[in-house]
């Protein structure tokens, strides 16, 4: 391996690592606020890429129909569970966000998709279709489990992953897609040929991470989310609507997922089930960083990207084995250093 190849692999690794960083940071965020390990984040990413691809082809993406299905399901289930508690105002809001909005979006996409309105439209449409899904998924699957243990929530998250992968196949089919990058072409940087596409991925990633920083450090809502994660009862007592924080966290997750999907669609071929591995690699990063710190998670995710890139070169068949095995020594290290850990029931 010469230095050019090494640098090329590094570029590849950092770019993939940037995507994993977005995933990892999202998982930390969702976990902090809701204690849910949101494995299905990967599916949202894959769906976003598939949506862009469909729009590029002038077709109506499966997500437009999926959103209608999810909205109807969320509204129906909430009605069934809590019809005694619901106020007329809440019902109206539900009608608007769960039924009118998805159907409106579907009709709009049916009208506009065949016109192939180009990159900006595709991005906006993808965000519009994906972002509402976050809180819909939360309301359908997780809200009734809000008081459950981390273990139960994790099993539920795996169940959601299973269902979403199945739905993905139904709505998108088994074909793989690749989207056109935001920027094409290359420029030389020393001995290295850098793709503009790589630059765009990095810039968008940094913007998202920066945006998250500002949100959590500077805004009342961001602080309220953090506070809910630190002390749920304390947050309720200052008037934070903690039930809504789960929805907000999931909406953020879906937004970042949509952005990640738009980015990754141009880097590699995406299938309906590609999300799982992408999600899990971001997750490896989050675990390496202890499911706590955002900057460490981002760094660890870039490390995962590099590890993957170099192992793909040296032992391509064992790429995944190497990436996922890295967790084991880290867990070993944690088990040796953690010493006395508290009971789960002590922390609640």
């Amino acid at each position: 391996m010469n230095s050019t190849i090494a640098l090329f692999l590094a570029q590849d690794g950092i770019i993939n690592g940037a995507i994993y960083a977005l995933v990892g940071v999202t998982l930390v965020l969702v976990f902090a606020v809701t204690r849910i390990i949101f494995v299905p984040q990967g599916e949202l990413i894959a769906w976003a890429a598939l949506t862009v691809a469909a729009l590029e082809a002038g077709a109506v993406p499966g997500t437009a129909y999926l959103l209608v299905v999810l909205g109807a399901a969320a509204a129906a289930l909430e009605l069934a569970r809590e019809w005694r508690e619901l106020t007329a105002r809440y019902l109206l809001a539900m009608l608007a966000t769960d039924l009118a909005l998805p159907i409106g979006l579907l009709l709009a996409v049916i009208q506009l998709a065949p016109l192939k309105l180009g990159f900006t439209f595709n991005v906006i449409a993808t965000l519009a279709l994906l972002v509402p899904m976050g809180s819909l998924i939360y309301r359908i699957a997780f809200q009734p489990l809000a008081e459950a243990t981390v273990l139960v929530l994790l099993i539920a998250a795996i169940g959601v992953h299973f269902a979403l992968v199945g739905l993905g196949l139904v709505f998108f089919g088994a074909e793989g897609v690749r989207t056109t990058p935001l920027l094409s072409g290359t420029f030389p940087l020393g001995p290295l040929v850098v793709k503009w596409q790589s630059v765009s991925v990095l810039v968008v990633t940094l913007l998202v991470l920066g945006g998250l920083y500002v949100f959590f450090e500077r805004t009342m809502m961001g602080k309220a989310l953090r506070a809910t994660a630190v002390n749920r009862l304390g947050a309720r007592l200052v008037g934070v609507p903690v039930r809504a924080t789960g929805r907000i966290a999931f909406t953020l997750a879906a937004t970042i997922g949509a952005v990640s999907g738009i980015l990754i669609g141009s880097l590699t071929t995406i299938y309906y089930d590609s999300g799982f591995l992408i999600g899990l690699k971001g997750f490896v990063g989050a675990i390496l960083a202890g499911l706590g710190s955002y900057p460490l998670t981002a760094l660890a995710a870039v490390f995962v990207g590099l590890l993957e890139s170099y192992s793909a070169f040296f032992a391509s068949a064992f790429k995944e084995v190497i990436v996922f095995s890295i967790i084991i020594p880290v867990l070993l290290w944690r088990s040796l250093t953690s010493g006395t850990h508290h009971d789960e029931d002590e922390e609640v």
Binding site: G159, H161, V165
Partner: peptide, 8 residues
Amino acid sequence: IVFGILMV
């Protein structure tokens, strides 16, 4: 799909 929904 069915299994996932069943699990939840």
